[in-house]
Simulated scan of single mutants.
Amino acid sequence: MTERPARWTQATVYPDMWANPDDDPRNSEGPTPDGELPTLQDFLTNYRLTLRMKCEGLSPEQLARRSVPPSTMSLLGLVRHLAEVERDWRNWITDGDPLPKLYGRRDADFDEAVGEQAVVDAAFADLEREQAATDAVLAAYPNLGEHVGRERIAVRELLVHRIEEYARHCGHADLLRECVDGRVGQ
């Protein structure tokens, strides 16, 4: 990128926030989740929302814009990557044959993230479908200590790993979005 966009935020209450508290879907009134499983699910939900928020309002070309060479990382690539890893996590917890990769070859999730509306629409549909499918499989295992699948992974470990993956990539999304149009905030 040759141009440096000016840094800005939509927030008026706290200048380091992405949005004002009343406009932030991650803010909820009332008590915090009670128990380990609801707490983990709440964190996962909020990171999923954060990723979507970082992508909102951008054109397909902006979503596909790479960060800095030689990186192939883009916001659209992150969406595709997280759809791919949701599927991969589901493979960890099932006993059957693994599902094939969504985008074929290794790194195609990033390499083929091009600025076309059809690719953007497909990526978000893939992400929603894969999240829902993994959530549905995990719903059958309310005992976080249960070990499941061919790998005999603990449900707790899988949930924490998913949160870690989304949190790490939301950090990438912060920087990518700032490079695209200068918008900043948590």
Rank of each mutant, 00 (worst) to 15 (best):
T72C: 02
A133F: 01
T2D: 14
L127A: 14
M17S: 08
D121M: 05
V119E: 04
A19L: 15
I163Y: 15
E3C: 08
A64P: 04
T9C: 01
A64I: 02
A6Y: 01
T45W: 15
A113R: 05
C170V: 15
G35Q: 01
R4M: 05
D126T: 04
T39A: 09
A122C: 01
R129H: 09
E29F: 11
A64F: 09
V114K: 12
R105Q: 15
L144H: 06
G57S: 04
R106G: 00
L40A: 08
S28E: 12
E36V: 14
S67M: 11
D181R: 04
I93P: 06
V137N: 11
R183P: 00
A154V: 09
E36M: 11
K101L: 08
F110M: 07
T134N: 14
R80M: 01
G185I: 05
Q10G: 12
A6L: 04
E146C: 02
G30R: 02
Y141T: 04
R129S: 10
N143C: 07
E61T: 13
W8F: 10
G77R: 02
A125P: 09
A6H: 06
A108C: 03
E84A: 07
E130N: 02
P70F: 06
P5L: 01
R48M: 08
G35W: 00
R162Y: 01
E61R: 13
H81R: 03
L44K: 08
Y166E: 03
P33C: 09
F43L: 09
L82E: 09
T94D: 05
L44Y: 05
L75S: 03
E86W: 01
Y14R: 08
A19Y: 15
V119R: 01
I153A: 12
